[in-house]
Design a protein around this nucleic acid. Structure first.
Length: 877
RNA sequence: GCGAGCUUGGCGGAAUGGUAGACGCACGAGACUUAAAAUCUUGCGCCCGCAACAGGGCGUGCGGGUUCGAGUCCCGCAGCUCGCACCA
């Protein structure tokens, strides 16, 4: 077997990470230095750092390493700054993969999950993260999900939960409900069966009740990325318009329609006079009534349903419709009537599920009208268009214009016409101005075993009865089987059969469990008092929340973050805490990418199997050529993954941490490269050697004389400028810049060795070495401790030391280089003392040989001096 | 279609309107070594120029503008990436 040659195993390393890392991890753990009380201490400011907790898939991946390293840098830095830091970790432990494992391999979801957690916890501990491990929670534990059941019941009592019928994707082979992403091209991802839309009774959390607050709250989250706020804003989707009722004419013979009107939502009530038709969704109640008597309508609706689930179909589907034969009258023109169509482009989920078609102002309506040859007239006249000749053929009018062909709206601009139309509608009692929201209530019912049971008992006499508090938690049964399709809870012989809490008659438990997004909607609050008998302890939750810095992937920009924001408000309303926004600061980190490799037969190869050469790559075992593919997200299918455990074994945790922080800014994607890791390991060894040289060769009590040699002064200034620069970089979430500055100070310290015997250099070297240990500690905490232990064997560990402070009078360089420009072009530089008066600097600049040469014979009309930076001469020709 | 972001050497990237390319990777040269690894020194945007030392021109996707001075600010364009998308 050919092991790759690495610096760590081919040379005797100065620093033995394999021994040092476990040692320091154990010391930190034993001293409990990262533990904080449930209620934050009053003597220090609090800081809550949280990284999105992982799904326990079994193996920690590099994305996790990057995420948790970033969080750990913040946590350790803030601790050193004197904050009381809450930095917990847990497991998002419910979910489908565990059930899939059960079906495929016969292992119980609980055992599979707990084994995975154990494996991943080991890796997390090896990485040396400063977690308060006493607070670890797993959402699949009854202690957690039981509290979640309590929250559910409190929300039910507060009117924030509702049970109602809803459409779901139904897999008729697996007998189960599928999430949208499990439906591929209209078929179940597992069974391949054609998916049906089916109505089921489902539990809903009424997130729409908070739609205005969830929208307004976004403007008070300045420390969130702009794009996440924008995405949420659009998801919530506030729009102003009107609801308009269209009276339904007497249906032709044979119809069974007991409705007298159809309500429509529109943002363009101003264009009512341009109406051409009325269109309803395939799921609209009126459509169902029509279908009862009309087989062709029923066929059309069924077709719409089949297309409904495939995204591709939606994208490419042309506008299609079915004329019901019904007609409605126009609110402003009672003598005119318009046809009612069922149209595939009208969504039941949005507005009222019905629209009025105005072809001149809406492209979809225009396409539809043209296809079915429905007549219409234009009502919006673009600026500069002639009302006599203006027509709309295949391009709808968007943007500005004035109303025409519109009776009392003629001549008005669009905004005024909207107001006027709404006023008239309200006057006639056939419509009103409304605010419509895109946001839908959150259906949380899942027909699954491995989730939090919804704590409800269904009784024939009493209906849906909440499980009483003293019977919580409703615990999942252990003895379940996955040998047939459907929900194991449903099949369990005894679990669901209970007495009704109200009337004691035989009743059945709700067998649906919660969407796993519920579990992650409040874990940040549970972390503040993870062992409390209630879901939260208000003093703890209020004391620690909001999370000061939340860190995770952009993929959760909408759902998770919106649900958590909703849950926080709902918990506020039910008395579990007193804050509204869970996350004051949000940081979304980029992905970890890697080159991908394929052999001649097109098989993907792991990076370990590949040897990079100057020209390309070859197989490590056979030497056969390898095609180097794109740099893309690490994924098992492309085999372009690097396992954190392997890196920890070969290079140590600190090298892995250092590398994911170097080079790329954290919000961007980074490329994992073998040479980059080696470079990181190389630097850390060098850093250690440089510091060790100081620890071994420079007396610890070296004095700082009043007069020091230039080398000492230079090094001291470098040290203090580095303190300022690293502090600024970490405050600004730029660990890559902090890394660069630490490289520089390390080089400066190594250079100073040449001047070891000069006045004050010993002191300056000690100071620089100690500072390096402190500044690198958030990034490479183990090595920082090891270096500090050499420098100050009797002193306290780094985790108990404060962040260094830069001395103001050492921040400026002792000598500054001034760029000298003529007309903005660089022509030379001069070195001056930073406090040299302006006129002297300019005189020096003018005397610089090359500058003087070029200024000869020219008339200087202006001399600009930016202190410490540049001199610029403006000359006349 | 709508929205957001990005575009700087061979590569990742740095840069309060003030010396563009810090720092790293890769690569080249040298020292040490029997040799290699490791380590150390050193070079490295492109072009012209010079024996050498100097110098000079062009350069941050493209085109304009503001300014003594623009990677940075403004206007327009292109390309790439991501998100949303029949939302009435």
């Amino acid at each position: 077997m050919t092991e790759p040659k690495t610096p760590a195993d081919t040379a005797t390393p100065a620093y033995d990470f394999a021994t040092a890392e476990p040692l320091w991890q154990e010391r930190w753990e034993r001293s409990g230095v990262f533990n904080v009380p449930d209620v934050p201490p009053a003597d220090r400011p609090k800081y809550y750092v949280l990284e999105m907790f992982p799904y326990p898939s079994g193996q920690l991946h590099m994305g996790h390493v990057r995420n948790y390293t970033l969080g750990d840098v913040v946590a350790r830095y803030k601790r050193a700054q004197g904050f009381s830091v809450l930095h917990p970790m847990g497991w998002d432990a419910f979910g489908l993969p565990a059930e899939n494992a059960a079906r495929e391999r016969g292992v119980h979801p609980g055992k599979w999950t707990m084994d995975n957690i154990a494996a991943m916890r080991t890796t997390l501990r090896q990485l040396g993260f400063s977690f308060n491990w006493d607070r670890e929670i797993a959402t699949c534990e009854p202690d957690y999900y039981g509290k979640q059941q309590k929250l559910f019941l409190d929300m039910l009592a507060a009117g924030l939960v509702e049970r109602r019928e809803s459409w779901v994707n139904w897999d008729p082979v697996d007998n189960t409900v599928l999430a949208n992403e499990q439906v591929v091209d209209g078929r179940g991802w597992r069974s391949g069966a054609l998916i049906e839309q089916k109505q089921l009774s489902q539990w809903f959390l009424k997130i729409t009740k908070f739609a205005p607050q969830l929208l307004d709250g976004l403007s008070h989250l300045p420390r969130w990325p702009e794009r996440v706020r924008t995405m949420q804003e659009r998801w919530i989707g506030r729009s102003e318009g009107a609801r308009v009722r269209f009276g339904l004419h007497e249906p032709p013979a044979g119809f069974d329609v007991d409705l007298d009107s159809v309500e429509v939502f529109t943002t363009r009530p101003d264009t009512l006079f341009g109406m051409s038709f009325l269109a309803i969704a395939a799921d609209h109640p009126l459509a169902a009534k029509v279908a009862k008597k009309n087989a062709k309508a029923a066929e059309f609706i069924a077709e719409c349903h089949r297309l409904g689930t495939s995204e591709e179909a939606i994208e490419t589907a042309e506008k299609r419709g079915f004329d019901t034969g019904l007609r409605v009258s126009h609110p402003f023109m009672p003598d005119r009537s318009f046809p009612v169509w069922i149209a595939n482009f009208v969504l039941m989920d949005y507005g009222t599920g019905a629209v009025f078609g105005c072809p001149c102002g809406d492209q979809r309506d225009l396409d539809f009208a043209n296809k079915y040859r429905l007549p219409f007239i234009p009502v919006i006249l673009p600026p500069d268009a002639d009302p006599q000749t203006f027509t709309v053929t295949d391009r709808a009018t968007d943007g500005q214009g004035t109303l025409f062909n519109s009776a009392f709206l003629d001549g008005l601009d669009i905004a005024t016409a909207k107001k006027e139309a709404i006023a008239r509608l309200e006057g006639l009692g056939v419509g009103r101005g409304v605010v419509n929201w895109r946001l839908r209530d959150w259906g949380i019912s899942r027909q699954r075993y491995w989730g939090c049971p919804i704590p409800i008992i269904h009784c024939d006499s009493c209906g849906a009865v909440p499980v009483p508090d003293d019977q919580l938690p409703v615990v999942l049964p252990e003895d379940v089987t996955f040998d047939r399709p459907g929900n194991p809870l449903e099949h369990h012989p005894t679990w669901k059969h209970v007495a009704c809490p109200k009337c004691q008659k035989p009743a059945t438990r709700e067998t649906d469990t919660c969407d796993t997004f519920v579990d992650s909607s409040w874990y940040f609050a549970r972390f503040t008092a993870p062992h409390a008998p209630q879901p939260t302890v208000v003093a703890a939750a209020d004391g620690w929340l909001p999370v000061d810095q939340y860190i995770g992937g952009i993929e959760h920009a909408i759902l998770h973050l919106l649900y958590a924001r909703f849950f926080t408000r709902a918990m506020h309303e039910t008395g579990h805490l007193n804050v509204d926004e869970p996350f004051a600061g949000l940081f979304t980190q980029g992905m970890v990418n890697h080159e991908s490799y394929r052999d001649a037969d097109g098989n993907w190869l792991y990076p370990d199997e590949v040897e990079r050469t100057a020209t390309g790559a070859t197989r490590r075992d056979t030497g056969a050529p390898v095609t180097v593919g794109r740099v893309e997200k690490m994924s098992k299918s492309k085999r372009n993954t690097v396992a954190p455990v392997t890196i920890i074994e070969r290079f140590g945790a600190d090298t892995a941490r250092w590398f994911v922080l170097s080079d790329s800014p954290p919000e961007r994607d980074m490329e994992w490269t073998e040479s980059g890791v080696a470079g990181a390991a190389r630097f850390l060894q060098r850093l250690f050697r440089v510091v060790r040289t100081v620890a071994a060769g420079v007396p610890a009590d070296a004095p700082c004389p009043a007069q020091v040699a230039k080398a000492a002064d230079t090094l001291r200034r470098a040290t203090h400028r580095t303190i300022a620069a690293v502090t600024e970089a970490l405050e600004g979430f730029s660990p890559n810049v902090a890394v660069a500055r630490l490289h520089e100070l390390t080089s400066a310290l190594a250079d100073a060795e040449k001047h070891a015997d000069e006045d004050g250099v010993a002191f300056a070297r000690r100071e620089a070495a100690t500072t390096l240990a402190l500044l690198c500690a958030p990034m490479v905490p183990h090595q920082a401790e090891a270096m500090m232990a050499l420098l100050d064997p009797a002193g306290r560990p780094v985790v108990e030391r404060a962040w260094p402070k830069a001395e103001a009078d050492l921040l400026a360089a002792s000598e500054v280089t001034i760029a000298v420009q003529i007309m903005g072009k660089l022509r030379g530089t001069v070195a001056v003392a930073p406090d040299m008066p302006k006129d002297d600097v300019i005189a020096r600049a003018e005397a610089e040989p090359n500058v003087a040469r070029l200024l000869e014979g020219a008339r200087i009309v202006k001399r600009i001096y930016v202190p410490g930076r540049i001199v610029n001469f403006v000359v006349a020709k």
